[in-house]
Design a protein around this nucleic acid. Structure first.
Lengths: 225, 225
DNA sequence: TGATGTGAAGCGGTTCACAGCC
DNA sequence: GGCTGTGAACCGCTTCACATCA
C-alpha cells in the first residue's frame, strides 16, 4: 500500500535493465555508462539514470556503472534474490505451457503446483508437476508456501478463481483471462490480456490498409493545436 | 505512420469496451449510458465518452448508446469485421498453446500455420495445424495471405526471426520473447513480456514484505511536494 | 431533464539541461 | 573532461465541468 511511490513503469524498466546488464556481463563488460546502455538497447539515458536514482547512487561519476554490481542491486530491488513459489490455476494448454516456461525458473520462480476442477486431470502429473483439486487450494498454498498465483482459466471462471486465490492469502496474481477483474487494494493483480493485444494489432492493420481515407475524421476540426 | 493520432491506450480500451458490450448484449440490454458502463466495469465515464468521440458521435443524448450498434462500430473500428490469418513461429509449448487459444478464433483470427526449425516437428501436425520449415516462411505468407506473425521462440533467436518476418512483408507482430527487438516504423510490434510482468510481481512482494524499512530512501529528502 | 461531446485544468511521466563531482 | 544525479520544462493522457441538444 505504501510502497507505491515508484511507478510500475519504472519497475518494468528495471527488469529490462537487468536483462540488458546480463547480456553485457556475458560479454565481459565491467562498466557501462547510461549513455552506452541507452544506445545499445534503444533506451533513454536520462530515464535510466532517473530510474536508478530512485533506489540509490549506484554510479561512479566519470565512469558509469559497474555491471556486476548494478545487476546485483537490481536483483535485490526486484526481489529476485530468493525463490518465489507459484501455483497455476487451470491446466489447459496455456496453463501447462506456463508451467514449463523457462523464464520462470531462470528468474527464481518455482512452479509448485497446478490446480484444476477437471476430475480427469486431478491427481495426474503434467510436465512433471502435480495437478491438484482447486478445492484444496488454500491448504496447498499454506503447505507449499505458494506466494504467486497464475490464473489460466476461461474468462467466465476467472473472478471466482481470483476470489479463492485472494481468500487463501495470495498477494500477487497474474491473470491471463480476458476480463476485468476486481480485487482489493493490497493484492497486486497483473492482467496479460492477449485479446486486447491482438485487437490492437487488428486496429493497426485496419488503419494501415486505408492510409489516407478512413483515419479519424474528428468532427469539429482542429483537435490538437 | 499517419494513423497514429489515436493513442494505443485508447484502442486498448476500445477492445475492453467491446468485451463489456458483448456481456451486456448477452444479457439483453439495448442501451447503456457511459455512466452505467463505467460503474459496472469500473471504468471512467468521461474517458469512455472521449474515447468513442474520436471516432464519431455514436451516442444519443438523454439516452446513451445503443449496445448492438456501438458494438458493431467498435468491431469495424478495430478491424475485426474480417478474418486475419496468423502464423506462429516456434512450436514449443507456448507456440502450440497459442495455436489452440480460443480467444484467437473468437476474434476472427485464424491460425494458418506453425513454423519451426526443428526437423522432427516440421511436416507434423500439432493441434490440427501443420508445422512448416521457417525457411519457407515468406512463400507460405504469400500463399496463405498471412498478415500477423506471433514470435514464440527463445530470446536468442527472436531478432533473427523478426527480421525474417519483416522481410516477408508482415506488418503486425506479437512477440513473446523477453528481449528488446528492433523494427522499422511501419511495422507494429507488440511485445508481451512475461519476464517483466513476473518481476513486477516479485518487486511488489519484496516491497510488501518490508512495509516500513527498505522502501526507497530518496537520498536528499523531499521528492514530491 | 439527462445524457453526450468537449474545452480546460490537472497530473504523472519523460526529457532536457546543467550543477556537482570524480 | 565526462559522467552521474536532479530540478525544471515539457508533453500527453486523464479527469473535470459544463455547454449542448434530443
Amino acid at each position: 500500500m505504501k510502497a507505491e511511490k515508484i511507478s510500475e513503469l519504472t519497475t518494468n524498466r528495471l527488469s529490462v535493465y537487468l536483462r540488458c546488464l546480463g547480456e553485457l556481463a556475458d560479454e565481459g563488460e565491467e562498466t557501462v555508462s547510461s549513455a552506452a546502455l541507452a544506445k545499445r538497447f534503444h533506451l533513454n539515458s536520462a530515464q535510466i539514470r532517473k530510474d536508478l536514482a530512485y533506489f540509490g547512487e549506484f554510479g561512479i561519476r566519470r565512469v558509469g556503472y559497474n555491471v556486476e554490481e548494478l545487476r546485483d542491486h537490481l536483483v535485490r530491488i526486484l526481489g529476485l534474490d530468493r525463490q518465489h513459489r507459484v501455483g497455476i490455476i487451470g491446466s489447459g494448454r496455456l496453463g501447462t505451457a506456463l508451467a514449463d516456461y523457462y523464464g520462470f525458473r531462470q528468474r527464481n520462480f518455482i512452479v509448485a503446483a497446478l490446480f484444476d476442477t477437471d476430475g480427469r486431470k486431478i491427481g495426474k502429473k503434467i510436465g512433471g508437476i502435480d495437478v491438484f483439486d482447486i478445492k484444496g487450494f488454500s491448504a496447498k498454498v499454506k503447505k507449499d508456501k505458494i506466494e504467486v498465483a497464475v490464473i489460466a482459466v476461461p474468462a467466465e471462471s476467472a473472478q471466482t478463481v481470483l476470489d479463492i486465490v485472494v481468500k487463501a492469502g495470495i498477494k500477487a496474481v497474474m491473470n491471463f483471462a480476458p476480463v476485468r477483474l476486481k480485487v482489493g487494494g493490497d493484492v497486486k493483480l497483473k492482467t496479460i490480456d492477449l485479446t486486447t493485444s491482438l485487437e490492437s494489432l487488428a486496429y493497426f492493420l485496419a488503419g494501415n490498409a486505408k492510409p489516407a481515407g478512413k483515419t479519424v475524421k474528428p468532427k469539429a476540426g482542429k483537435r490538437r493545436n
